[in-house]
């Protein structure tokens, strides 16, 4: 039994290594359009994992991640375009501001029960979208902000790609550290039974708020990265459809695995590029995909693979590990 766990774990390590190597050589072996696609996958993987810190780990059902993502993107865009801030500061400010605004919004959202949390997150994201959409003088309204003065070095797609890869890599490592920490375990306990945690001296709302702020900051990083990648920002970034993208990425990959949103992002971005080319009604299929996943594949791709495939491969049921409990 023990040996099996070790083999699985070392396999996981090996898989990760192969994946990293592959991601590293992407610009050398792929066409530019594919590099952009992988770039987008990386950004959305980070956004998905950030959202999943709330959904999968803390059990807080947020429908407004795109709002915070847009705060990150617009922070970088506005600081660069309007105030000519140095690039590094414009990027670092994104998670800081997203975290602060996330803190404000989160303070309201955790004040009432879970159902209000869901509807308030959606409402606040809509507020952010409205502000961006209406405030022509500052955000450019529905014209967005284009030709953002990004350092020329990052005009080359492969340079931008490596920046994204590095930042996403570090961010995911941080998120992984967080979910494995005592704080992360406490969040999972809150997900399982929020009422009970109060009787083991956990200040429930404070922890939920902390999770909200952390999640917002990472969403801000993702937004900022996408702003750098595309060189422009639009109100669409805050639109509820963008939140749907992120929710589906988590759902598709699986909520209860750290890697779920990463796999979800890769599959989802790939699919959306292919299907949206063929049909005007991509959103309809997206809706159908959501319904299908909820009804028949609740644990997502990663959950499906580890439940159905792993036992079949090894001819035995998977031993319990930390992973399953999450």
């Amino acid at each position: 039994m023990n040996r099996l766990v070790t083999t699985l774990n070392s396999h996981r390590f090996l898989l990760l290594l192969v994946l990293l190597l592959f991601l590293f050589i992407v610009p050398f072996v792929m066409k530019e359009s594919w590099v952009s696609l992988v770039n987008e996958m990386l950004v959305m993987a980070l956004a998905g994992c950030a959202l999943n810190l709330m959904l999968g780990y803390t059990g807080m059902i947020s429908f407004g991640p795109a709002g915070l993502y847009a705060v990150g993107a617009y922070t970088t865009a506005i600081l660069l375009t309007r105030y000519r801030f140095p690039f590094a500061i414009a990027v670092i400010s994104a998670p800081v501001l997203a975290g602060i605004i996330g803190g404000l919004i989160g303070w309201f959202c955790v004040r009432r029960s879970a159902v209000y949390f869901a509807l308030l997150t959606l409402a606040f994201a809509q507020i952010i979208w409205t502000i961006i959409f209406e405030w022509y003088g500052f955000t450019g309204g529905d014209n967005g902000i284009v030709s953002i003065p990004i350092p020329e070095f990052f005009f080359t797609i492969s340079h931008c790609y490596y920046l994204t890869l590095t930042v996403v890599g570090i961010s995911l490592l941080l998120l992984w550290t967080i979910v494995q920490s005592p704080f992360g375990k406490t969040l999972q306990a809150i997900r399982e039974n929020p009422g009970r945690t109060e009787f083991i001296a956990i200040h429930l709302r404070r922890y939920q708020l902390s999770a909200f702020v952390l999640s917002s900051a990472f969403l801000g990083i993702a937004g900022s990265l996408f702003c750098i990648f595309s060189g422009s920002v639009f109100p669409d970034y805050a639109h509820w459809v963008k939140s749907t993208d992120m929710l589906v990425i988590c759902l598709l990959g699986g909520f209860y695995n750290f890697g779920g949103p990463i796999v979800g992002s890769a599959v989802y971005i790939f699919l959306s590029k292919i299907i949206s080319k063929e049909t005007m009604f991509w959103m309809f299929f997206l809706g159908v995909i959501i319904v299908f996943l909820v009804l028949f594949m609740r644990n997502g791709i990663v959950g499906f693979l580890s439940e159905k495939l792993a036992p079949a491969l090894h001819g035995t049921s998977r031993p319990s590990s930390d992973e399953e409990a999450q």
Binding site: F63, L247, F284, G287, V291, V294
Partner: peptide, 27 residues
């Protein structure tokens, strides 16, 4: 089919219906 499941899935399902109904109207 999903009343016994976590709230998360019910909410996401109705979220998916927004897309389906909206696109049907558009069509």
């Amino acid at each position: 089919r999903i009343y016994t499941q976590e709230m998360l899935y019910q909410y996401i399902l109705t979220f998916g219906l927004i897309l389906i109904i909206g696109e049907t109207c558009k069509f």
